[in-house]
Amino acid sequence: MARWLLHSKPMRLLHCLLILLVWSVSCTDFDDLFQSNWSPDHILIQQDHVNLTLDSVSGCGFESKKKYLFGKASVQIKLVEGDSSGTVTAFYMASEGPNHDELDFEFLGNLSGQPYLVQTNVYANGTGNREQRHTLWFDPTTDFHTYSLFWNRHSIVFLVDNIPIRVFETKGESGVAYPRNQAMGFRGSIWNAGDWATQGGRVKTNWSNAPFVATFRSFDIKACELEPEEDAEAKCGMPRQFWWDKPSLRGLTRHKAHQLKWVRARHLVYDYCKDSVRFTELPRECT
């Protein structure tokens, strides 16, 4: 930013606001910004990464101490290697209460040599059941890859290595709920879901392969921080006040739209909007 611009009071205030909204979290700061929400003894904080461990005793999870509304949250993850059947590693945003909002990345383990499935889901005002499942175009167990959630008042975009794999758009005129006023915390976890995660539960968790370890690093949150007593619309909802409200971010660019089309053609293996067996009447957003 040009130095002369910072001499004006409005620009100084904007500059300070941007600093407050951007958190690039190193693992040495992990305890300052995150807390364990179950089994802290299964979370190992290293200098440049955090290991989450699942064994026959317990899985584990963490959550951010702050909550956010609109913006972008990213993390790099290296998933459980080898036979990970029955395990679920998750990166998600969630609010509190029965009518909560939630945006999910869930990585469903599988037998050695078979592809991981990435399940995404959107909860709005307590209603979910909006699963999509994708394979990936790389092996997510051999190296770190970046998984991101971007959301504003117009759409939610799930990205893998900055490539969109799913878009959920607001359709308020159709009466479809959309996450727009509940602040959500950033969360990560690993847990046992042997009853459904792998081939619908036909392949169970093989505890002889435990412990199962997923590694997280490079946490990055660029979002509007919202305290419980603050008004969501007044703090985070004013149009064009923040970078994520730019007109150019109301939808995907042409390049991003082509990437999404490529992902859907090659890697989408399940879409709730196509499941006429599960839904006798498809959800309204699907039409």
Rank of each mutant, 00 (worst) to 15 (best):
T89L: 09
F91D: 01
F91E: 01
Y92R: 08
M93L: 15
A94I: 10
A94E: 11
E96V: 07
G97N: 05
N99P: 01
N99W: 05
H100E: 01
D101R: 05
D101Y: 05
E102T: 02
L103I: 14
L103A: 02
F105E: 00
E106S: 03
F107S: 03
F107T: 00
G109Y: 02
G109H: 04
N110T: 11
N110E: 00
L111A: 05
L111Q: 15
L111C: 06
G113W: 04
G113C: 03
P115V: 04
Y116P: 06
Y116V: 01
L117D: 02
V118Q: 09
Q119G: 02
V122L: 06
A124H: 03
N125S: 13
G126C: 11
G126Y: 08
T127F: 13
N129C: 00
E131A: 12
R133I: 01
R133H: 06
H134Y: 15
T135G: 10
W137E: 00
F138Y: 14
P140T: 00
T141F: 07
T141K: 11
T142N: 14
D143R: 14
D143Q: 13
F144G: 09
F144K: 02
F144I: 11
F144S: 11
H145Q: 12
T146A: 06
T146S: 14
Y147L: 04
S148R: 07
S148C: 06
L149D: 00
L149I: 15
L149T: 08
L149V: 12
N152P: 10
R153H: 11
H154Q: 15
S155K: 14
S155F: 11
I156E: 08
V157K: 04
V157D: 01
F158Q: 07
F158R: 12
F158H: 15
F158L: 10
L159E: 14
L159A: 07
L159D: 10
V160T: 03
D161N: 15
D161A: 10
N162Y: 02
N162C: 01
I163S: 12
I163D: 08
I165Y: 15
I165T: 05
R166T: 02
V167D: 07
V167R: 09
F168R: 08
E169Q: 14
E169M: 12
E169H: 14
T170V: 10
G172L: 04
E173F: 04
S174P: 01
G175W: 04
A177G: 07
A177V: 05
Y178A: 00
P179W: 08
N181F: 08
N181A: 01
Q182F: 04
S189C: 08
I190N: 13
W191F: 12
W191Y: 15
N192D: 15
G194N: 10
W196K: 14
W196R: 13
A197R: 06
A197E: 05
T198F: 13
Q199L: 14
V203G: 07
K204M: 00
K204T: 00
T205Q: 15
N206H: 09
W207Y: 09
